[in-house]
């Protein structure tokens, strides 16, 4: 099961630190709302496309897929604004939304999931003060990623078992009769995994400083 939206390329955009790319994205979002003119939004869109397609050399399809995901929204925005205010405002709002979505897509396609997880751990570092351990956040992310294929496999097994007994319910009933036993199974599994982790020392806070002989 390949999950990530990451597109490997040897480009300057790919090499930028993930934290910096996220910061740029946040600045762009603020700037787009602070400069409410259609030319600013158009220039930003051109800039995002130039960075994504020319500098990072992403395939057009990657950006097109994200644009396609919001195409009905954009259309609805245009129509509603054309009816209530005017077409120009609608075009501006739609352009701004498209720019932000594509900029986010560029950041996502040029940054590995592992780098993003590292950023999350760094961002979580100040939360140490309220008792959050950044390493535990990383562990939770890793666990969730591992559980996804396990869940699909267990769900398939339950469905196969039900089909073998002659009953394969459909619709809403299928949700109930599949998910309830699945949940009980995987809750037990998660408990076993946590005991295995604890047995290997996952609940022990690593020492702050290196042990020194003196």
């Amino acid at each position: 099961m390949t999950l990530a939206l990451y597109v490997p390329r040897a480009s300057a955009v790919h090499r930028l630190p993930a934290g910096l790319k996220l910061l740029c994205l946040a600045v762009l979002a603020v700037a787009l709302f602070a400069l409410p003119t259609i030319t600013a939004a158009g220039a930003a869109l051109a800039g995002v496309l130039a960075v994504g397609l020319l500098v990072a050399r992403l395939p057009v399809a990657v950006l097109a897929r994200q644009a396609r995901a919001v195409r009905w929204w954009l259309l609805a925005l245009l129509v509603v604004h054309a009816l209530t205010t005017d077409l120009l405002t609608g075009a501006h709002v739609a352009l701004r939304l498209l720019t932000l979505v594509l900029a986010a897509a560029v950041v996502t396609a040029t940054t590995r999931v592992s780098e993003m997880v590292a950023v999350v751990e760094t961002v979580c570092a100040p939360l140490r003060l309220v008792g959050v351990r950044p390493a535990r956040v990383g562990l939770a992310i890793t666990l969730a990623l591992r559980f996804i294929p396990v869940l699909t496999e267990r769900a398939d097994r339950i469905r196969a078992a039900q089909a073998a007994r002659g009953g394969s319910p459909r619709g809403v009933r299928a949700l109930r009769t599949t998910i309830a036993p699945l949940l009980v199974q995987v809750l037990q599994m998660a408990h076993d995994v946590s005991e295995a982790l604890d047995a290997r020392g996952a609940d022990v806070e690593p020492p702050r400083a290196a042990w020194r002989r003196s």
Partner: peptide
């Protein structure tokens, strides 16, 4: 937070 809670959250 116990590791068990962490596993449930991830699940």
């Amino acid at each position: 937070m116990k590791t068990r809670d962490l596993a449930y959250i991830a699940l």
